[in-house]
Design a protein around this nucleic acid. Structure first.
Lengths: 153, 153
DNA sequence: CTTGAACCTATAGCTACTAGAGACATTAGA
DNA sequence: TCTAATGTCTCTAGTAGCTATAGGTTCAAG
């Protein structure tokens, strides 16, 4: 049996995150020690690593919930898992093309900056006048792809 | 003088969002009609359009706050605006390369799915076993680039 | 047995909004 | 002029996915 801290270190997930996953029902409640501390069976580690990996790939928690349910029932057809992964792939692709458009415009903006005073700054000017923008379509196609920033550990 | 609704339609920003911007001090409080409704001078439209455009480019609100302050003082050197834009550009670039790695892995996952049962599904398997992943470095370099999904209007 | 680390619960905060309730204001048409 | 429809007001709470803090308890090493 693992303590929550050891489980977290092994899976690369912070302790409060594990408690959060339990709270929202992504992990089932752990058994407790006599002193009320959580104890985990080693199998929980693979489940948590699964979650972690899916989060790294940008899957939203709700999709992960579905994937875990599928994993628990290996005789089901795989189509549902495939559909979830494909949806995620499409969300990633949408986000990439959107960000490419942004990058393009940002690069032009920065390149045109003459490093003078703000009054004649292209950065400020382009932001203020959308017509100067060469990609006027960057307000479309934003998909629901969560930005996951648990990098800071 | 414009009502909040007309201002919002003209700038492509929802009414509650304008009130929110006022609340957090991004827009100064509007004058009010006798019946306590907000009235905006036409100049506010360009300020709001500026915000909208910067949001479309992914700038966080705090960066926009700084950019607006710069815009208000045209004699300052442009270096600060340039730095903000460059930081945003770098954040976008980081996010793009990160998403490219994710796309790569997702594509492999989906391509290997044999559409059988979950028990032999590559999607589930790869998620559960990080070692099967060909890009094991996707847990690094996540920058603070907000995902802005106000596309739904 | 003591000490320090790890653990517990509960609450609040983060970004950038969005949604809803219930009441008041404005405006276009009859 | 009245009325109905739409617009607007404030306030609160909710969204995703955690993170941080406070104040207390338990565990493991020495």
């Amino acid at each position: 049996m693992l303590s929550i801290g050891k489980l977290g270190r092994a899976a690369g997930v912070k302790v409060p995150t594990i408690r959060y996953y339990e709270q929202i029902g992504l992990l089932s409640p752990a058994t407790r020690s006599e002193g009320n501390q959580r104890l985990y069976a080693p199998e929980t580690l693979s489940r948590l690593a699964f979650i972690r990996h899916a989060r790294d790939l940008g899957f939203p928690l709700e999709a992960i919930r579905d994937l875990l349910a599928l994993q628990d029932d290996p005789h089901q057809p795989c189509a549902a898992a495939d559909a979830i992964a494909q949806a995620q792939l499409q969300a990633v692709n949408r986000r990439i093309s959107q960000l490419n458009a942004l990058r393009c415009e940002l690069e032009k903006m920065v390149a045109q900056c003459a490093h003078g005073s703000v009054g004649e700054c292209r950065v400020i000017e382009v932001l203020g006048n959308h017509d100067l923008c060469l990609h006027p379509d960057h307000d479309e196609g934003h998909g629901p792809l969560a930005d996951h920033d648990h990098a800071s550990h």
